[in-house]
Amino acid sequence: MAQPTYALIRFQEVGAAKVQTGLLVGDRVLALGEDINTLIRHWDTTEGQLDALAASVDGLTGLAVSDVEVLAPVEPVQVLQAGANYRKHVIDLAAAHRGPGEDEAEVRAKTAAMMDARAGEGTPYFFIGLPTAIASATDDLVLPAYSNSHDWELELAAVIGKEAFRVSPEEALEHVFGYTMVNDITTREYVFRKDMPEIGTDWYRAKNAPGFLPTGPLLLPAKFFGNPQDVQVTLKLNGKAMQDESTHDMIFGVAKLVSEASQIIPLRPGDLVLTGSPAGNGAHWGRLLKDGDVMEGTITGLGTQLIHCKDEEPTESGQQ
């Protein structure tokens, strides 16, 4: 008999304050006794127990997933984010920002050659995100009133399973517990400091507002996920596909990203390593997020995000 597939979630029962970790098998949820990071940390002993538990599930076991509130499936201490990690995305950006008189085909060819060289000889570009920006896969996204330039970036995220410090690319995937989906929301006008151009990018202001990391709904153990370089990342805005790309287009694959991230800091169980955004962000389309927009995000095997956008409401004093 084939091994049953299951995912992990974090949830609350309707009307209850307690947050629980759950085993999701089909449409049934079984509450587990451990918090998510403890479960990940002790996977060597809990895996077999959950395999057996999943095999025993029937249509009457536990709770119906429709009867619980599904939360973000992870509680990371550290969030590592990779930038400019999809070949087509970087080429599109270079073409969109080419200088006056520059030929688009030449810019694309030159950038493609640069990305190929970077893949062979370079290292990933990382920055740090804040766990306080994490939201669930169905929470409304409140668009801060200080800007009209909020953008989407649906990404595959690796969840660390055991501490990784200065591991090689060959060892790296042994330290990955599983995978989840994250939409890395970005305020475009805040990415570069206009008042201090020499300081470069300001990821703190651009990416860490409340709810700017919609995450989940599922945490899928790596053994059920298959090859992380062969899944499809798709984001639809109001029903229209904006991002639709295979992770095969990554410049640096998951193993390389985890390895390189671990060269500087120890990665701990439950930490997130975001792998970068495929082509098709709002900046590419000339269409950024606005009140009433609905984002539907899917990555093969990781469920569906459904995020409704709404403008921030004015305060009582009338100040935004």
Rank of each mutant, 00 (worst) to 15 (best):
F177W: 07
G26V: 09
T111N: 04
A135N: 02
L71W: 06
M115F: 12
L173I: 08
L156Q: 00
F165M: 03
V294K: 11
I265H: 00
A54W: 04
A137G: 00
E198P: 07
L39G: 02
M295H: 03
D151R: 10
P217A: 00
F225N: 00
E260C: 07
P197A: 09
Y146M: 11
L39H: 06
D35F: 04
P100K: 04
L8R: 01
L53R: 10
D35E: 15
N148M: 12
Y190A: 04
I265Q: 02
H89N: 08
R188Y: 06
L274S: 09
Q232D: 14
D58N: 15
I91Y: 00
S277M: 07
F177V: 01
P76S: 03
E245S: 07
T304Q: 02
D244S: 13
F252K: 02
C309H: 01
G33A: 14
A117R: 07
L93G: 13
L220A: 09
L60V: 08
E316H: 11
L288P: 02
G318T: 01
Q3P: 05
V159H: 06
V77C: 08
E155F: 07
D140Y: 03
V294M: 04
F165Y: 11
A119F: 03
T201D: 01
L130R: 05
G161D: 10
G62C: 15
V14S: 14
G286A: 13
W43F: 12
L71E: 05
Q232A: 10
L39D: 08
A261D: 01
L173F: 11
L302T: 04
D271M: 02
A7D: 07
Q320P: 12
S168D: 13
Q319V: 13
S168W: 12
C309V: 04
D58W: 08
G99H: 11
E174D: 15
T247P: 00
E121Q: 14
A96L: 12
L24E: 07
T46P: 11
T111R: 03
E153G: 01
Q3M: 13
A157G: 02
L130C: 03
G200H: 05
A222Y: 03
L141C: 03
L141W: 00
S262F: 02
K88I: 03
V19W: 15
N183S: 10
P269F: 02
E171F: 03
E106S: 09
W43G: 10
L63K: 06
R28G: 06
P221L: 13
F126S: 04
T201E: 02
K88G: 05
S246G: 09
T215Q: 09
I134Q: 04
M242D: 10
V29Y: 09
A2Y: 07
P217Y: 02
V159K: 09
I251C: 05
A54I: 10
S149K: 06
V176I: 08
L257Q: 07
T38N: 09
R108F: 15
A2V: 14
E189H: 11
F177H: 03
Y146K: 13
V191Q: 04
H308A: 14
G161V: 08
F224N: 01
Y146C: 04
D202W: 15
G253A: 11
I40D: 01
D140F: 06
D58Q: 12
N281A: 13
A109V: 08
E75R: 14
V19Q: 15
L154S: 10
P210N: 14
V19M: 15
T138W: 00
H42Q: 15
Q320S: 13
D244T: 08
A84F: 08
D184V: 05
A279Q: 12
E171P: 00
E171G: 04
K290V: 06
